[in-house]
Amino acid sequence: MANKEIIINGTELDQMGESSYDLDQPSDGGNYDARVSELNRKTESLEREKLQMVNLNSESKERIKKLSLEIGELQNDNASKRKKLKEMEKEIEWSEEELKTLESVAKRAVELKIEVSRMQHDFVDEQRRRGKQGSK
């Protein structure tokens, strides 16, 4: 045996990938028909296995396509939600600034109300004082 032999699925192959036996010349003492039948069964089995693999491959490709579309939709939804979140954060920031402004206005309104009250009190006191001076 000058060439190394490789056995794949029960068939001996030489380094060139060719069968080491000749179908026209039975090597096992006349079991040619049995060997052909065995090879035919193996071929059919391999063809069924190939068909199953092709079907499985097609199903996998379809599933990958669906999942890729779903990922794309989720990414778009995520981008949309991030945009909405940024808008809401800006609105909150604006509301906080507005609240500070309103608090400042309310504080100033209280100060002005106190000042008006003092002025009214001073005015009433001044009126009384003038009234007392005019009666003398």
Rank of each mutant, 00 (worst) to 15 (best):
L85V: 11
S68A: 08
G72K: 14
N55V: 05
N40P: 00
K50R: 14
K83D: 05
S45C: 04
R48P: 04
D24K: 15
R63I: 05
K86D: 06
K50M: 13
K81H: 01
R82S: 08
K84D: 06
N57R: 02
K42R: 12
E47R: 12
L67S: 07
E44L: 10
G30F: 10
K83E: 07
E49N: 14
A79Q: 07
N78S: 15
G72T: 06
R48V: 11
Q75W: 02
G72S: 13
S27F: 09
N31V: 07
A34Y: 12
L69Q: 11
L39K: 03
S45H: 09
K42T: 07
L67Q: 12
L56A: 07
D22P: 01
S27M: 03
M53E: 03
I64C: 10
D33F: 08
N31Y: 13
R63N: 10
L56D: 11
K84T: 08
Q75V: 15
K61H: 02
P26K: 00
Q52V: 02
K50T: 14
E73L: 10
R48L: 11
L74F: 05
E87F: 03
Q52D: 12
L85T: 03
K66Q: 12
D24W: 15
Q75K: 15
L46R: 09
R63H: 06
E59R: 10
A34N: 15
K50A: 14
N31Q: 15
L51Y: 08
P26A: 14
E62L: 04
E59P: 00
K65H: 06
Y32C: 06
L69A: 09
K65A: 10
